[in-house]
């Protein structure tokens, strides 16, 4: 289920004094089964970009394709698109509204027009996918859960639509370190089960740890793209556009400049550790 974006431009409030260009000729493609990170700071256009990927914002025809469907085409089947692309917004727990967790998770599948048995099966499956026990939480009100649990329920609500592509906007925002770790494990699990994942973040640490490939957005344009290692090579330029590379990538550069033999773009703690050990034992 590939995503194909060809020169997407988005202008907010065109023709008014508030006119602003959120996206400028952005092109990208995402393959089936990839785990892709989109990074950029606030106002870089990343949120606008993802709303285009499931037809919430409409583009010109021939610009955004998902799974072969042209999302900009007149009369594009929005339900069909949402069946393919699931979108989890920032702080998704603020969209919960039903009396019970099960009913809330069922909202998406119900809108897809599925039958009751299928919906029930999907709700249970989705709750398990986010690490919740259906028997325990199904009949609870979503409003009596803890913050982290609420967010899981909200994600389950999107997973229950069984999209082949899942897009998450800052899924770990506001969580504490343990909550972040658990959230990332959960997302990795979803990816491992065969879903294409697109994660939006402003933390290089997080995307570096999880994603296969990154798109760095700056002022509505793609500044860099490639594997984390390929992107982190540009550490100075990234810093200038308000993004920071992981601490260990910084250390690797410092050591390289001091004469250590460190591979380019190295950033994982374990890799940096191994490289340092190699240098120290080799030097003796």
């Amino acid at each position: 289920m590939p995503i194909e974006v060809k020169k997407l431009t988005h202008v907010y409030m065109p023709g008014t004094p508030f006119e602003s260009r959120a996206l400028n000729a952005v092109s990208l493609s995402i393959q089936d089964g990839e785990f892709v990170g989109i990074i950029g700071h606030t106002g870089s256009g990343k949120s606008t970009l993802i709303t285009h990927l499931n037809g919430l914002e409409k583009s010109e025809p021939g610009v955004v394709f998902v799974n072969g469907m042209d999302l900009g085409e007149k009369g594009a089947d929005l339900i069909a698109i949402r069946r393919v692309v699931g979108l989890v917004f920032q702080y998704p727990e603020y969209q919960l509204f039903e009396e019970t967790v099960a009913k809330d998770v069922a909202f998406g599948p119900t809108n897809l027009g599925l039958d009751a048995d299928e919906i029930k099966r999907r709700v249970e499956h989705a709750l398990k996918q986010v690490g919740l026990d259906p028997a325990e939480v199904s009949e609870k009100s979503p409003f009596e859960l803890s913050g982290g649990q609420k967010r899981r329920v909200a994600i389950a609500g999107v997973l229950a639509m069984q999209p082949g592509i899942l897009i998450l906007d800052e899924p770990a925002a506001g969580l504490d370190p343990m909550g972040r770790r658990e959230m990332f494990d959960l997302i990795r699990g979803i990816h491992d089960s065969g879903t294409t994942v697109v994660m939006v973040s402003h933390s290089m640490d997080d995307v570096g740890r999880l994603c296969d490939r990154l798109f760095v957005l700056n002022r509505g344009e793609i500044a860099y793209t490639g594997t984390p290692a390929e992107v982190f090579v540009h550490d100075n330029r990234l810093h200038a556009i308000g993004l920071d590379v992981p601490e260990c990538a910084k250390l690797a550069r410092r050591l390289r400049e001091a004469g250590f033999d460190m591979p380019e773009g190295i950033y994982r703690t374990e890799d940096v550790c191994a490289a340092i050990i190699g240098n120290l034992s080799g030097g003796k």
Binding site: F89, Q95, N111, L112, M161
Partner: peptide, 14 residues
């Protein structure tokens, strides 16, 4: 906020 919630629910097929 209403705008955001509306988008989120639309993404769930509302």
């Amino acid at each position: 906020e209403a705008d955001k919630i509306m988008k989120a629910q639309k993404a769930r097929g509302a």
